[in-house]
């Protein structure tokens, strides 16, 4: 298993290089001007100088390799230095700089990451916590009222986009009922019980919107997987042993049903980040998603490239994680 994981990690490098090149090219080739956001009073010669200094006139391959080196080497070192305090980062070395803010892209990302992680992470956990029991009970009581209502709701939750449910939630719970704020205040700090309640109130809507979407997706997998397994012969064997239903369902059936579901959960984590882009817009959470949107609108090529590449890394890593988990959970899978 370890050798397999290491082999996969090594194989991930060419994949990521390829992806990085594609991302770089696509973003680079889009018709955007890094000086477009600057005041109109700046004369064309100065603009040209700015472009020159940003290096956007270099041959594209040179630009790519420069960016790649920063992305793969300098920025990770800066990250490590930031986390550990060790003095490893190249002194005064180049960074990937945002066109718009003129600060290193990595710093922006690190500023934005906690908000996204909070909202996305909590909503994913909430989603899983709703989905698993829902899927299990739905399958065990197939065609019952519970199952039919549950299946209907998850179908709706699955097909209605989050920007719609988000706005709907805002209209109902923030505007009409006034229970929760419609805007997520990221400067809010939790210090005591009262401020915790405030935090809870402001996070509840984005978390529910994303969480319900995740729940409807995962619960469908859970239900299908449980149904698959409930009809297997080994379930009859378990019952013939005189085990009680709880053990039959929650040990024998669930252990098997979780194999594909855990894989799906792992595979979906990067997608949830992507989905959060929209929810962050709706609730004005200034996370990674919002950073990306602003960067796209402002033609901030380095930010778009870097954030997209980080998403790509997440996808590759969680794919790997899903495969490894599959092997851990299913004794029939041998990776060597």
């Amino acid at each position: 298993m370890l050798t397999y994981t290491i082999r996969r990690l090594i194989l991930a490098i060419p994949t990521l290089l390829f992806i990085s090149f594609i991302i770089f090219l696509i973003v680079k080739l889009s018709p955007s001007d890094p000086t477009a956001g600057l005041p109109l009073t700046i004369p064309p010669e100065v603009r040209e100088q700015i472009r020159q200094s940003l290096g956007v006139n270099d041959p594209i391959l040179i630009q790519y390799f420069k960016w790649l080196k920063l992305m793969m080497w300098d920025e990770p070192l800066h990250l490590i230095e930031g986390w550990t305090g060790w003095n490893v980062a190249p002194e005064g070395g180049a960074r990937i700089i945002s066109y718009q803010t003129r600060s290193p892209v990595m710093d922006l990302i690190i500023q934005r990451m906690p908000q996204t992680l909070w909202v996305v992470g909590t909503s994913y956990i909430v989603g899983i916590l709703i989905a698993l029991p829902l899927g299990i009970i739905s399958a065990y009581k197939q065609y019952s009222i519970f199952d039919q209502v549950g299946t209907f709701i998850s179908m709706v939750g699955f097909s209605v986009p989050t920007f719609f449910t988000g706005v709907l939630f805002i209209v109902i719970f923030a505007v009409n009922l006034g229970w929760f704020p419609s805007v997520y205040n990221t400067t809010h700090v939790v210090t005591d019980w009262d401020s915790f309640v405030v935090q809870l109130k402001q996070i509840i809507m984005p978390v529910m919107v994303l969480g319900l979407y995740n729940a409807s997706q995962i619960s469908r997998y859970m239900r299908a997987s449980m149904l698959d397994n409930l009809n297997q012969d080994y379930v009859r064997t378990a019952r013939a042993k005189g085990l009680n239903e709880k053990v039959v369902v929650l040990v024998h059936v669930l252990r098997n049903s979780m194999i594909p579901v855990v894989t799906v959960i792992a595979l979906n984590i990067p997608a949830v980040f992507g989905g959060a882009i929209i929810t962050e817009q709706v609730f004005k959470v200034n996370g990674i998603g919002q950073l990306l949107i602003i960067a796209i609108q402002g033609g901030d090529v380095p930010v778009v490239q870097t954030v997209s590449f980080i998403f790509a890394v997440l996808i590759v890593l969680f794919n790997l994680l899903a495969d490894v988990l599959y092997g851990v959970l299913d004794p029939r899978i041998r990776y060597d």
């Binding site: 080994y234 005189g242 024998h252 252990r255």
Partner: peptide, 23 residues
């Protein structure tokens, strides 16, 4: 339940699927 598997045992047709693959 106390009788099933204790006082009355059962063996089924298909041994390939009758055992739980993950235990």
């Amino acid at each position: 339940r106390a009788i099933r598997g204790a006082r009355i045992g059962m063996v089924f047709q298909d041994p390939m699927t009758s055992l739980n693959p993950v235990f």
